[in-house]
Write a protein that binds this DNA or RNA. Structure first.
Lengths: 160, 160
DNA sequence: AATGAAAGTGTTTATCC
DNA sequence: GGATAAACACTTTCATT
């Protein structure tokens, strides 16, 4: 009975303490072996491998990837730029943003500004040339990141 | 001679075609076995394991982690909020941002606004309550993400 | 949905080049 | 800095519950 109720409410595989533990462990170290993960939740390796497969299918685990400090990659400066394309220039501006490797993230948003882009820069000297690429096609407003009180993180898991 | 010159210019381990291949492969799938990575660059597994260790030490590989679509986690909405704390409220505002799990990224920036925060929201109904937490302490300006032309990515590797 | 056992791979250390 | 070999550990499949 309680089992049936639980099943109905269990919309995603993360609505389960074990799966939340596995995901939290993989956020910290995506290369942990299935054997290690299994030991940490006191289960067999095949059972954990099966859970991982289901978490991947459900999208709760999207991809396994690496993170690195941009400073170590030679990009000590981050700029956040609000971009308001001039009439008729929206598609061209978007294309330039997508094709510029220094643009490490770009969102299209509601409101007066249309795009918010994050640039990784090797030095402050790169900022002007970078913005010149869209200066004729958009109004821009730039902020330089001085500190990052919250580094990229995932929010609480569903059911946590 | 050429070897010596190359050594001098070789400031980081990524200034090397093999290492760039390894990093690119791990960005796509951080769980690739050392054996698979070794085959992809036509080297032995111990040699590749040694390179990974050095890339980790140099910070070019920071952490192995997972990425997931926030929709699959139950957060279909992203808001980007510019935050200008009222006089004397800066530290309290920063503390609230850090302690709010829905704030998945927050940068302190130059210019008129002080913080730029990214919120993951379960529904549009969550937006007002979320901003109310800092409304008495800061002026805010909110944009809702409609699309993401550039999803989080790393810029070009040094030497690439 | 989980376990245990077995076969196939992968990892790691030591040694040598 | 890289290769090989051997010991050890992990992964994956299958039969069972």
């Amino acid at each position: 009975m309680a089992q049936a109720v639980r099943k109905i409410r269990n919309e995603t595989p993360a609505d389960d303490e074990v799966n939340r533990t596995l995901i939290a462990a993989l956020i910290k170290d995506a290369r942990l072996s299935v054997a290690d993960l299994a030991r940490s939740v006191d289960m067999s390796a095949p059972a954990v491998a099966d859970r991982l497969r289901k978490l991947e299918e459900a999208g709760l685990i999207g991809t396994y990837t690496i993170d690195a400090d941009l400073k170590a990659w030679g990009y000590p400066l981050i700029a956040i730029v609000r971009i308001k394309p001039l009439p008729g220039q929206l598609h061209m501006v978007e294309r330039i943003l997508v094709e510029t490797p220094e643009v490490i993230e770009c969102d299209k948003v509601t409101g007066d500004d249309c795009f918010i882009a994050r640039y990784a820069l090797r030095s402050i000297d790169e900022l002007d040339p970078m913005l010149d690429r869209i200066a004729q096609r958009a109004q821009t407003s730039t902020a330089i990141v001085k500190a990052s009180p919250v580094r990229r993180r995932m929010p609480s898991l569903p059911g946590a």
